[in-house]
């Protein structure tokens, strides 16, 4: 009987000791000394999630610590940015941002701005094209605009949600061409099926979401929203070259809370630059139609100022802010 008691004790003791071994060590050594949390603003399985996880996997060797993806979905990204804003500025909470860092902060649902973060680097961007069904009567964006001019309120443009980058792109296009369209906030699940089913004639979506249908011959792209043509679809013109001054990227990059030490930021820049060249990440990015185009800390902050101007302007045009 005594013996059995003892063996129980030993098991308990061993388990405790073993679990202590898994605990992060306390030490004052150089950053990073423990796993880094990588906050993803959208749900498990989406484009942002899959690319974020691949990037984290690619950057962890250079950083020297695991980068652990944590999904904080909700409120169009607002939940993640709020959590990130409230985190300690020690470099152990890193946010995987996107254009949503500009849209959520400007629309007024969260009490901070994109400038309340240190925006570490940009990984790349993708276009937000105007797409129609294969059998649509318009062959070019010009024809679509001409039709919309003659039939105000007839064209319905689907987007990913009011105030999202896709909505703002459509709003900009509407205002610069002086047409009148109906914006339908279809959301992530319904945007492509709605267009294929004919509920809306036109959609504005991030390129990766429509790419399978375009390659499969069910949909056509009329124009892309980026400054230059997309390498995957070089035959599709940009809105700018068609004479409509609309430039809007869906970018993705890295942000950390304001006040994070400069040497930590530099380490993150190096690690994520390396991560963006990782084979696994490149493979996903390539298949997702995402253009890897790295920008360091200063370049990214400058880029954000310019993008933010676009976002604010189109939010005003769309009547979402005053």
């Amino acid at each position: 009987m005594k013996k059995r008691n003892l063996s129980y004790l030993i098991i308990v003791a061993l388990t405790i000791v073993f679990s202590m071994g898994f605990m992060p060590q306390v030490s004052m050594a150089e950053y990073p000394t423990k796993p880094v949390s990588f906050l993803i603003p959208f749900g498990v399985g989406g484009s942002a999630d899959l690319m974020g996880r691949a990037l984290a996997a690619g950057a962890k060797d250079t950083l020297g610590q695991p980068i652990v993806p944590i999904n904080r979905p909700g409120a169009g990204g607002g939940i993640m940015y709020t959590a990130l804003n409230a985190s300690k500025a020690d470099g152990y909470s890193v946010g995987w941002n996107s254009t949503s860092i500009l849209t959520t902060t400007n629309i007024g649902n969260v009490p901070f701005k994109y400038t309340d973060f240190e925006n570490v680097c940009r990984i790349g961007y993708t276009a937000m094209p105007i797409a129609v069904r294969e059998d649509a009567p318009w062959n070019t964006l010009k024809e679509l605009i001409a039709y919309a001019k003659n039939n105000p309120g007839k064209i319905k443009i689907g987007n990913a949600g009011t105030g999202s980058g896709t909505h703002l792109t459509a709003v900009m296009l509407e205002k610069v061409t002086d047409i009148q369209v109906v914006h339908v906030p279809l959301g992530a699940k319904r945007r492509v099926p709605s267009c294929l089913g004919g509920e809306v004639q036109v959609i504005c979506v991030p390129l990766p979401e429509a790419a399978p249908q375009c390659l499969g011959g069910q949909m056509r792209l009329l124009a892309v929203s980026t400054a230059n043509r997309d390498p995957k679809f070089p035959e599709v013109p940009t809105m700018k070259e068609l004479g409509y001054p609309v430039v809007m990227d869906l970018f993705r990059g890295i942000s950390v809370p304001k006040g994070t030490p400069q040497n930590v930021i530099q380490k993150l820049v190096v690690a994520f630059e390396k991560g963006s060249q990782d084979e696994g990440f490149k493979k996903i990015a390539d298949k997702k139609g995402f253009n890897i185009s790295f920008q360091g800390h200063d370049a990214f902050e400058a880029y954000l100022i310019e993008q933010n101007k676009n976002v604010v302007e189109s939010l005003k045009l769309g009547g979402l802010i005053k």
Binding site: L215, G216, K283, I284, K287, K288
Partner: peptide, 9 residues
Amino acid sequence: IIQGLIPGP
């Protein structure tokens, strides 16, 4: 898609 297969008709 990552495997290089594009679902669709």
